[in-house]
Design a protein around this nucleic acid. Sequence first.
DNA 1: TGGTTAACGATGGGATAACATGGGTAAACG
DNA 2: CGTTTACCCATGTTATCCCATCGTTAACCA
Lengths: 163, 163
Amino acid sequence: MFLSTTNNGVDAKGRVSVPADFRAVVRGGVFDGIIVWPSFEGPYLEGGGQALMERYQALIEDMDPYDEARIAFERAIFGAAKPLSFDANGRVTLPRELIEHAQLDGKATFVGLGSRFELWSPALYAEHQTRARSFARDNKKSLRLSPRRPSSSRPSSSGGDAS
Amino acid sequence: MFLSTTNNGVDAKGRVSVPADFRAVVRGGVFDGIIVWPSFEGPYLEGGGQALMERYQALIEDMDPYDEARIAFERAIFGAAKPLSFDANGRVTLPRELIEHAQLDGKATFVGLGSRFELWSPALYAEHQTRARSFARDNKKSLRLSPRRPSSSRPSSSGGDAS
DNA sequence: TGGTTAACGATGGGATAACATGGGTAAACG
DNA sequence: CGTTTACCCATGTTATCCCATCGTTAACCA
């Protein structure tokens, strides 16, 4: 499982060290590396191991062969996905177009999301985080996670990040 | 699996380098090359390895021998498909009619789509690419990954194409 | 417990092989 | 006999591999 957030450097050749935890997730597959594609939702990258790609492929092959959505997904995901293999030190080389899409400038933030991960420019990710947080606050009623309830006594005062 | 998008040149002889990743996918078959035919959906080419052809053959042979659709598929795919073998440098020579169908003019864009690939004029593909991305964004809900269940119904090497 | 050392992960740079591409020549085809 | 197709070699560019360095963490020893 891809977990946690890591900030690594992107050198002049576009190389970036994949966090060791992430490498351990994909270790064992026939393809020793990760697969990365530009998100079609924003200026960041999405990635995973080959197993993730095969899950997408299974999903897509269940769709009608001439479904417009199927063709769109095939082109948006498979067409844009780059297989990036690890070098001896656990790095991958990001192609120029991926670096540009995510606006990476010397640094990249790996964000683990369980079955996949995201790659962000640190600055954009911070911004995205604050927006995500306020979105969560605005929608907290729909975010009830578990039957466990806080049972009062918790200071409802805004804890620092007021807006 | 055919992945990623590559832009290669088409010289005066109609030769184009097949991306090395793509060559690796079809490597090992008895026929050392790719099979390409004009799409009946638009001005581009479709292609794959021999394994893909055999899949199509199996699909079509399940249809009624006198089904009009079967005849149409046979003519549109098998009748128009050209086996293009690699030269020593990994290139194929595109016949004139394929170049004209896809309106290739010095450049060709290989688009990997998992079990097959497409060949486009770069300008024409750019347009379809943006449309595919926005369509995918609007319909992403239909791509939800279901929680992986242990009883996977198919072996991991799906589709017969090598990794 | 404090200090030292070995191991792992991350980073930087240079050498080398792979890839894409161009042109030329010989064989095959009509 | 002319045209086309296949094969061969040469070259620039790019990506891949290999080695060295450095910081951090974890293990080990006194």
